[in-house]
């Protein structure tokens, strides 16, 4: 699907959720997104523990006994005929990312303001593409963090062996 472009910036960059990493220093999770075009640089979003777990469950397509919050949103959409078309990471202010969720029903499109965690959680469950604007991509944090991330993961593995 063509993500289109937002006014004033170049074409959107499609991202794929690569993995969710635990940040042992804080009770947060790091969602690591990779570019679909194969560019090796990553995009990272820090999210809360429960938000991170919700993304991880969708990524692992693990089933829970009862529907979790984003499964419920998806299920409401299925009942009402609402399609999640795409989600776009549209802005970053004071290290907080902003996302927009594009919904469609009977030819009517609506956009919703969302936290990236909710947007990504829903997108994964609905097989909707995830995009980032050129502007937000340029301003992403942790550009040099790939090395740090791999160190972190090695440490995590070590900790589990103890």
């Amino acid at each position: 699907m063509d993500g289109g472009s937002l006014q004033g910036s170049g074409p959107l960059i499609q991202l794929l959720v690569d993995r969710v990493v635990e940040d042992p220093a804080t009770d947060t999770r790091i969602v690591v997104l990779a570019r679909k075009d194969g560019d090796l640089e990553h995009f990272m979003v820090w999210v809360g523990a429960s938000e991170g777990e919700a993304i991880k469950r969708a990524l692992d397509t693990s089933l829970t006994a009862r529907p979790m919050s984003h499964d419920l949103i998806k299920s409401c959409g299925e009942h009402l005929g609402i399609t999640t078309e795409r989600v776009v990471l549209t802005d970053v202010k004071s290290s907080t990312y902003y996302a927009t969720v594009f919904l469609e029903n009977k030819g009517v499109t609506r956009t919703l303001d969302a936290r990236p965690s909710d947007a990504i959680s829903l997108a994964l469950r609905c097989q909707a593409p995830i995009y980032v604007t050129q502007d937000v991509w340029q301003r992403r944090s942790g550009q040099q963090l790939d090395a740090w991330l791999s160190k972190l993961e090695t440490k995590n593995i070590g900790a589990q062996e103890v």
């Binding site: 949103i73 009402l80 609402i82 919703l112 969302a114 936290r115 909710d118």
Partner: peptide, 15 residues
């Protein structure tokens, strides 16, 4: 920022 259930509400409100 909208929490998950605020997002759920605006999802339903939108339509």
């Amino acid at each position: 920022r909208p929490m998950t259930h605020d997002f759920m509400k605006s999802y339903l409100d939108a339509f």
